[in-house]
Design a protein around this nucleic acid. Structure first.
Lengths: 223, 223
DNA sequence: GTCTATATGGGGATAGAC
DNA sequence: GTCTATCCCCATATAGAC
């Protein structure tokens, strides 16, 4: 068994098992037997369990960022010199992840989406790694969004971007829950459908007039 | 030390520690020493760790549901015989959780929000307990939303409700991350501010015209 | 009801042979 | 590079004294 093959099998098995049972819920013993590898192989290839977790994320995040930026640049060029349509910006952001569901190699990558959706709310230390890799891309999108919606104050734009990320993360991480709660009416595996629904919803949300300082009712804390 | 006091201290400590370190990341030893109780007390009061987790949720969820329904009924009565404003429906749903931040007894309950936001994407078996307690309330809101937006097909309405839940869960569970990513411009502890921003965003999203079957571009899978 | 002590099992990591 | 065997730690749960 070659070195690279073992490494890849470990990553695939870890990705799937972490998605299904969580990081703490998956032992190295479970991973290595699923990957037909030896227990010590994890420490040889990734130094530690934390190293393995970080590697599971890094392997997918870099291509994901690249595809997002490529599609964003395409949208910018196609619309130049005007700013691109809001919908096209959103699609450039959403499509690269949603596309991972239901495609050929997506059989593996689908598990990764669950992890990615969960990472924002996870208590562990993985957030730092993922966030540092995600930040430049988010910053880039923020700038372009800001040009497309120049009347929106920056904090409001930030909140709306977070709501978008939350909706996307929820669709990824809680897919089976959504299927269950909707009694099958919502299919989280239909990436194209989710893309359509989320783009429509979020585009309208982003275009909403900006929030007024607060209505003249009493404070909500003591209504 | 009375029985009820010990029970309550265990729940408080567990709530905080689970929020900070996750369920698997928190041992019964850590909980019992934080609560100044004996290790065996957990098994005496809650039978098992799972029982403790379930109790942490049940204690908060029931009042939360009641407040949501009460506010929804108020909005319905105030607007009768017309359906209530979309914004009022959304506020009835959002306010009871967001209000838990920054209020007096909210010092404890704030930790609960993190848990609640995380539970949808957690790999464990807690989902089932929480979902079963949440479902009737969600169903009720769905009906009222459906009356306020009669032109929206049911699946689209369901998706939009899931996007709302995702945004809310993200604001709760990833609060510190949002603060960090926005370099302080977004304050997740300002419940009233989050309520304003999210209501504006989501109301516009819910009001968007319903998604058309699909644009006549090529499939997104092979663009 | 509360405590101490312990049973029982599993975890991550590593040393050293091959 | 890969494997076996093992070290050492900590978890949940319970039995039985107080």
């Amino acid at each position: 068994m070659s070195k690279e093959q073992t490494r890849a099998r470990l990553l695939d098995a870890a990705e799937r098992l972490f998605a299904e049972n969580g990081f703490d819920g998956t032992s190295l013993r479970t991973i290595t037997s699923a990957a037909d590898a030896n227990l010590a192989a994890v420490n040889y290839h990734f130094q530690s369990k934390e190293g393995l977790i970080a590697a599971v994320f890094s392997r997918r995040i870099e291509p994901l960022n690249q595809e997002r930026i490529t599609r964003l640049d395409q949208a910018i060029r196609a619309a130049a010199p005007a700013p691109p349509d809001l919908e096209d910006i959103l699609r450039a952001f959403l499509l690269p992840t949603l596309r991972l569901r239901g495609t050929a190699d997506g059989l593996e990558a689908g598990h990764f989406l669950q992890l990615l959706g969960r990472v924002f709310s996870d208590p562990g230390s993985i957030k730092a790694v993922v966030l540092s890799q995600f930040r430049p891309t988010a910053q880039r999108f923020l700038e372009v969004l800001s040009q497309a919606l120049p009347q929106l104050p920056r904090p409001e734009l930030l909140w709306r971007l977070h709501f978008l990320i939350g909706s996307l993360a929820h669709a990824h991480a809680a897919g089976e829950l959504i299927r269950l709660m909707s009694a099958g009416a919502c299919d989280p595996d239909d990436g194209e459908g989710v893309l359509q629904h989320l783009t429509t919803f979020a585009a309208a949300g982003f275009r909403a007039p900006h929030t007024r300082p607060a209505p003249q009712k009493a404070s909500m804390v003591n209504p």
